[in-house]
């Protein structure tokens, strides 16, 4: 079985600061990490590989330094890594990214047929949740999003059964391979890297493809040229002046809630009692 896991190197959002004057994101000096949602699918891919045999290939698109994230994935046990890096890819939105990634996956598939493509539910920097589905659409793959667990996989009949969290309950879905899966956070925890895997990762050759090597024929679908999305403005929302107050109540009946709310209101506004007759008169 061959599984491709798409990952993205992102700034560690826990350490991002917004510039106090310009309100823009300050990217300098922020350490990078693998998008946390991608770790979930990486672990799931490794588990399936351990159970059914085969190979896990991790794929990313990014600057040359994204090599670091691929090596981390190798250190956790992935078997091969492919980096798409080219100035033509720079400035890609989700449309162009899914184009580049799906092109590369087609090439990987031609070399060694791919059974499952995993992608993170979304990234913590873009938060769009569009790239995974975009890849599925472009490749014509069956698509399972927001999966919380994989129930079973039958390589003989080439079918998979998963649990998908939906509003009001859990759906149990089945589909045929090949397919694309995105998973929910908390579905599993990424394993620790073993020392042999860490050494293998450090010494491994990461396959690096530019646009041409990845099999891109129409360069206008890549990077800024292939990205119709325009970011007009980035801003931090203004904090509201008023703050919510939690009012404790004696019990849960409407009368008790009303009483507690009134008490709180009058305690917070000592002049209210005096003002009420005027308000009533005015109305």
């Amino acid at each position: 079985m061959h599984i491709v896991v798409c990952i993205k190197q992102v700034p560690d959002s826990a350490q991002i600061r917004v510039h106090p004057v310009t309100n823009t994101i300050m990217r300098q000096g922020v350490p990078t990490i693998i998008n946390p949602y991608d770790l979930v699918v990486l672990e799931e891919a490794l588990r399936l590989r351990d159970q059914f045999g085969g190979k896990v290939t991790v794929l990313t698109m990014g600057p040359p330094m994204a090599d670091e994230s691929l090596r981390k994935a190798l250190a956790c046990g992935a078997d091969a890594a492919v980096l798409l890096t080219d100035r033509f890819f720079a400035g890609s939105d989700t449309l162009a990214t899914s184009f580049a990634l799906s092109t590369a996956i087609k090439k990987i598939d031609a070399e060694e047929p791919v059974d499952i493509v995993f992608a993170g539910k979304q990234t913590i920097d873009g938060d769009t949740a569009q790239v995974g589905p975009g890849i599925a659409k472009r490749m014509g793959l069956n698509q399972l999003t927001y999966v919380s667990a994989i129930r079973s996989l039958d390589l003989g009949s080439r079918s998979i059964v998963v649990e998908r969290r939906a509003e009001g309950g859990t759906q149990v879905l089945t589909t045929g391979l090949p397919c694309l899966i995105t998973m929910l956070e908390g579905s599993n925890v990424l394993r620790r890297g073993s020392l042999p895997d860490m050494f293998r990762a450090a010494r491994a050759e990461v396959t690096t493809w530019n646009a041409e090597q990845a099999g891109v024929e129409d360069i206008t679908q890549c990077g800024l040229r292939g990205s119709p999305t325009v970011v007009k403005k980035v801003f931090a929302p203004k904090p509201r002046n008023e703050k919510a107050v939690l009012v404790e109540t004696e019990g849960k009946s409407d009368a008790e809630i009303a009483r507690a709310a009134i008490d709180a209101l009058f305690t917070a506004n000592p002049k209210l009692e005096a003002e009420i007759p005027e308000l009533v008169l005015a109305s």
């Binding site: 670091e68 090596r71 250190a75 450090a202 010494r203």
Partner: peptide, 11 residues
């Protein structure tokens, strides 16, 4: 084994 210093840090 020709490890980069980064790899030592990682280990």
């Amino acid at each position: 084994g020709g490890l980069e210093w980064d790899a030592v840090e990682g280990i």
